[in-house]
Design a protein around this nucleic acid. Sequence first.
DNA 1: GTTGGTTGATCAAACGTTCAGCCAATAACA
DNA 2: TGTTATTGGCTGAACGTTTGATCAACCAAC
Lengths: 240, 240
Amino acid sequence: MAFGGGTSHLPQRTSRAGSSPGSQAKAPTRVARKEATRQQILAATIEAIADGGLADLTLTKITDRAEVSRGLVNFHFDSKEQLLVETLEFLTLEYLASWKRALERAGADAGDRLLALVQNDFHPSICNRKKVAVWFAFRGESKSRPTYLEVCNRADGEFTTTIVGLLETLKSEGGYRFDAIRAAHGLGALIEGLWLDCLMYPQAFRRNEAIATTMEVLTALMPKHFKDWRETDEREAASA
Amino acid sequence: MAFGGGTSHLPQRTSRAGSSPGSQAKAPTRVARKEATRQQILAATIEAIADGGLADLTLTKITDRAEVSRGLVNFHFDSKEQLLVETLEFLTLEYLASWKRALERAGADAGDRLLALVQNDFHPSICNRKKVAVWFAFRGESKSRPTYLEVCNRADGEFTTTIVGLLETLKSEGGYRFDAIRAAHGLGALIEGLWLDCLMYPQAFRRNEAIATTMEVLTALMPKHFKDWRETDEREAASA
DNA sequence: GTTGGTTGATCAAACGTTCAGCCAATAACA
DNA sequence: TGTTATTGGCTGAACGTTTGATCAACCAAC
């Protein structure tokens, strides 16, 4: 006899965040709760991938972590596959927002802006083992899943375009002679390779080492601009 | 009624390679056939991962591709997991053998040796989308599978050590001032980042571009040695 | 005659998905 | 404002499928 008895219907789950900061509203509206649950599932998915990998990921692992029922994922997302795509999109948008914010804070000077991008890329909120593991888990599957590839490349593309623009500005400012597009791709590759180090050698990896390595390349390329990037770095750190 | 009837027992499968080139032996010994089948399964695993990913990999996909029966994998390998580890080890050893051979061919000069390593890393037999996809599929899972991580790092470690040695030789030859360890890690990161490009942008990726990018960094670091690496490159190509 | 690589049916476990049922939040009405 | 009907986010048992693994049977090589 199939009658599903929801014995404990948990009216409110452990609140994840206090919604809008200014409001002391004690009654979370229905749509707000729905969205919160969705985010909870996405967050649980990221953590599940981070410590179990994509290959052995199951909906049960996700729902256990999110503390929701098994069937809920298919209510919020059409399928497991769809959930994964949206998870990847979430990460992508988060990264995009992060470097755009860093760019805003950096001001107008191209050198400052490029430095800000590099520092952002190795900021703990971006370059930590959990996030990097998830990132590379998706990349590792991207040959067989064109959707993953597309989402990744959309993000990468915009970033690279921005870097090319900055390099071209710096190039004409300093009268340097290098191929901006090639340099941008090389810089991007170097950064991703260093992220991979964060994944593969977690205990040896040093954020500042990675920044130093990247900046050393930039200094070699544009000595007039980045001769004293360390001072800028410290000035930034002091004002933070 | 359980009686397994092997209806078509295929006495010999489509031969993969003619074993030793000099021998016209038409009777492949039993142990040789066993080993050949093992290799066939490993090769099929690599291809299955390359175009289906690690997440959706099943033994059926592997055995279909290898044209062997379903149960055979568990005869040659203890488990699916064990098969995957051995597949990764196979790739690792293949890569190791490749760059050691390149090193031998390069002779004694440290500059030639370093150039040879770079060229080997972007040789079609190493840097192609299939291999790179498999490589990154394993890396993407390496946080949750310490065994994968260990196998990858064992290979990487030896490579990096070799690079450090070469950089230190070049450094004292040219009187350069750079941190050899940091430079080696940066070079390694750059190369892996460029491999990732091969995976993510298959149509835009150009092997020679990647080599040029890498060599430009090396030239910036050690101008006396790599000012004219292109000529060396062409000389190599002409003699090949 | 014996060994040992290979087969394919078979198994239990686990998977993604579905869906009838449930109840708090909301809307409709008084 | 107080009461009732409706909605909709959520639950968990159930379903059909597929998974990795096992093993008795088989036969070519020894």
